[in-house]
Design a protein around this nucleic acid. Structure first.
Lengths: 347, 347
DNA sequence: TTGAAAGCGCTAACAC
DNA sequence: GTGTTAGCGCTTTCAA
């Protein structure tokens, strides 16, 4: 009856107990779903509502050593294809909230000490590390933490941590198969800029996948070197790229940025993708359909990847002691749109 | 000497005290920078290092009612121009860490109850609400929270909260002035899709700014209706857009998406921006320079906006009781690149 | 089914 | 300059 509407001080479970005429422990029982007489429960809930009571997170954590927070460690630099990061983050938060967790977002600026800080101060219960490279200093640090950690991206040595990643080899298969099925004879793709070599496992896998399927179908595969992914660099590759244009060429674009540039490159040469040459891209369906000529594409399915990663993490948070898992997320299929030429019909 | 390297249990300040042969309070003094004899301090720091001690955040919060966490509430839907969101988030985290704060990221999915939960459970010390609309249900909720809140975006009624926003009116001025200075006679711009009307204050301001300066310079201003910002809708506006193409037309693009589309539209019509027609855009410098023909642009300066917002928030967190502030972030200037035609030189 | 009481790890008033 | 101690708000034995 005292501190009812007086603001500036949040009500405690003691206040609720007093108002409901029960002991503090009873309030706790109600909150945590222990068996309580229906009539008592009603009185307590009424009191909680009246005081707009919410349990203090710090006190809870202190008592239970559970923070109900997970830390999401991402790379947000301007240089990257940061566009793709947003759906990941969105999905992580949605999944976390479904399990009554909040998400602390951390960038790499702080380095591995950041992980130690978050873990040893008991700020979070677990980690989701995104954009994990083959040799990633965070992995060693994270595996020493004694907390659940899931990696998105494959390090050479996962040190007993769960890993999820895109199955880009399969993606490459689908893309080349699509071109083979529609009667193409040449496949052209831009290589990674030099700096990227051996950084992310899914990059190597992609090119491996291309080679495998080009070989199987007896197609010629041109991998065109690239200095960086700026427009200028890509524009300079126009001639090697379009060399085979009149001999059933299919161009494969691995990133949004490259896709973008190739579309413009073709346009500037007066070439229409889907008529003069084929263009197939690894990008989301949203992006594929945002072009004047909707692109034939394979979606990497970022939301599926993230959901799986969160599943792994919550399994661990629930106490799972299974051996570490490594799972790749396969793309569903190719969606054929306006940029595929079907040579099997023409000839 | 007991629980030295034994893992699974984080060391406490009591362990540190024992190892250093001092009282627990002395450890606290060292951590919190109270005066301590240099020699004692050294022993304590040595012990902390040896145990790799980090103070438990929950216990600290419980004692001090300070979480050292701020909540960032953003809109991450796929529909939006989410690209622009990443630099905001990155800056928020960097600024927060500079002040020894962590950032909890929250989306709108949860609605205003999410704010109440974060505040009343003492999960965070303050809020940064992004993408605030003119009538935004979060504002009332947030202003009742008794915690520091900064809004990015102007509601009709700010209810005593600090507000920062882009000065898009000024942006519009700069863009039209650039076209006037280079001898243009017509200005064309796409209107907002119907759904956007009256949602964000900075939208109205932008068109107001355009009108003001077009009037002043005696230029004709065409605002072209748009159903939505898909490629198809924009493509359909080609004719009205290019009507005045041969009478010194300058096109203004307000968003990345529209900019993108217009570039492609011009290209498909065989028009070169910077020769046949001018194109000036409100977009970041990074984006402006990513096109084959670098765009004349005005940068909205997302990082500057965010830094200011964080400044406001930390002022409040430090206890400032000043009257609520409203501050707009002006763009620096127009950067003239390849897409401006200079008619004052030609005629 | 409910209550009394201890204690999670820390900070800060107070005593020495 | 350092130690003693109380208590932040919660959960959880243990007892009734």
């Amino acid at each position: 009856m005292a501190r009812d509407t007086r603001s500036g001080k949040a009500p405690t479970s003691r206040d609720v107990a007093a108002l409901a005429g029960v002991a503090q422990s009873t309030v706790s029982y109600v909150i945590n779903g222990r068996q309580v007489a229906p009539e008592t429960r009603a009185r307590v809930e009424e009191a909680m509502r009246k005081l707009r009571y919410q349990p203090n997170a710090g006190a809870r954590t202190l008592r239970t050593s559970k923070t109900n927070v997970i830390a999401l460690v991402v790379h947000l630099g301007p240089e990257d294809d940061a566009v793709e990061t947003v759906p990941y983050i969105d999905t992580v938060i949605a999944e976390a909230r479904r399990h009554d967790y909040d998400v602390i977002l951390s960038t790499l600026h702080e380095g591995p000490e950041g992980l130690i800080r978050l873990a040893r101060r008991s700020i979070c219960d677990g980690f989701l590390l995104m954009d994990v490279q083959e040799y990633d200093e965070r992995v060693i640090t994270a595996s020493d933490l004694d907390l659940p950690v899931v990696l998105v991206g494959r390090p050479v040595e996962a040190r007993g941590l769960d890993v999820v990643d895109f199955d880009t080899r399969k993606t490459a298969h689908l893309l080349v198969d699509e071109l083979a099925a529609t009667g193409h004879r040449h496949v052209a793709v831009h290589d990674e800029p030099p700096g990227n070599a051996g950084v992310y496992r899914f990059l190597d896998d992609f090119y491996t996948g291309l080679r495998e399927r080009a070989d199987r179908h007896g197609m010629e595969l041109s991998i065109i070197p690239l200095e960086d992914d700026s427009w200028n660099s890509i524009a300079q590759t126009a001639d090697p790229l379009l060399d085979h244009c009149h001999d059933r060429l299919g161009i494969i674009a691995r990133t949004p940025r490259i896709t973008q540039s190739i579309v413009q490159l073709l346009q500037s040469r007066g070439l229409v993708p889907g008529e003069d040459v084929s263009l197939v891209s690894r990008c989301t369906d949203e992006m594929a359909t945002s072009f004047p000529r909707p692109l034939t594409n394979v979606s990497p399915q970022p939301r599926k990847l993230t959901t799986l990663a969160m599943q792994f993490l919550f399994d661990r948070l629930a106490g799972s002691e299974e051996p570490a898992r490594l799972q790749l997320v396969e793309p569903e299929s190719v969606t054929r749109r306006a940029t595929t030429v079907n040579y099997t019909r023409r000839s």
